[in-house]
Amino acid sequence: MQTILNFFKSFAHDFDTVFIVKDRYMSIVRGLLNTLKITAGALIVGVIIGVFVAAIRSSYDKNRESLKAKKSVGYYVLTVLNAICKIYLTVIRGTPVVVQLMIAYFVIFVSVKDGVPIGIFAFGINSGAYVAEIFRGGIMSIDNGQFEAGRSLGFNYVQTMWYIVIPQMFKAVLPTLCNEFIALLKETSVAGYVGVIDLTKAGNSIAGVTYNYFMPLIAVAIVYLAIVMLLTSLVARLERRLRKSDH
C-alpha cells in the first residue's frame, strides 16, 4: 500500500516538474503548433506538386503515341517536362528527408532564420514526390474504358480527366494518401535539425532540463498518436461516404 502511494506521490511530483513548473507544458503546445503548421503547409505544397507531376507523367504515358504520330510541339514539351519530373522523383525519393531539410536550411535559404517556412518547403517538396506517384498509380488503375467513354461523348482530355478519371482516382487512392499524410506528420519530427521547436524537440528540451525522459517523451508520443488516430477516423468516415456508389 505504502509503495503504491509513494509511486503516485513521485508521479505527481514528476508531472509537476515536467509540465507545470515554469509553464513547461506551453512549450509542448507551441511545439505541437509548429508541427501542425509544417505538416499542414507541406501537405498543401505536396498535393499541389503531386497533382502537377502526376498530370504530366500520366498524360505523357497516355498521349505519347498519338502526339508523336502527329509530330506536334506538345510531344516535345511533354517529353521534356516528363524527364524533369522523373529526375525530381528519383532525387527526392533517393535521399533522406533530413538531408533535404538541412540542404534547404543551410545551403539554399541561408539568409532565412525561421525554420518553419523552410520545413514547409522541404517537407512539401519531399511529400510531393510520393503523392505524385500515388496519384499516377491511381490514374493508371482506372480502367481505360472510362477514359474512352468520356472521350467518345466529346469530352477533351482535360475534361475527361477532371469529370471522370480524377474523382474515381481520388476514391481509389484515399487510403494510401492518408498513409502518406500520417508518414508526413511523423517525419516532421526531424525539424529540430534546423532549429525548429516542434513537438519532438519540445519534449526533448523539457527532458534535457528536468532530467526526466520518461514523462515528456511519452507525452509527445501520446500527442502524435492522438493526431494520427483522429486523422485515420476522419478518413474512414470520408471513405464510407465515397463508397456510397459501390454497394
Partner: peptide
Amino acid sequence: REKMGMVFQQFNLFPH
C-alpha cells in the same frame, strides 16, 4: 465525337 455516340462491350458507365 459529340455527334457520334458509342456503346462499348463493357458498358463503361461512370461508377461514381
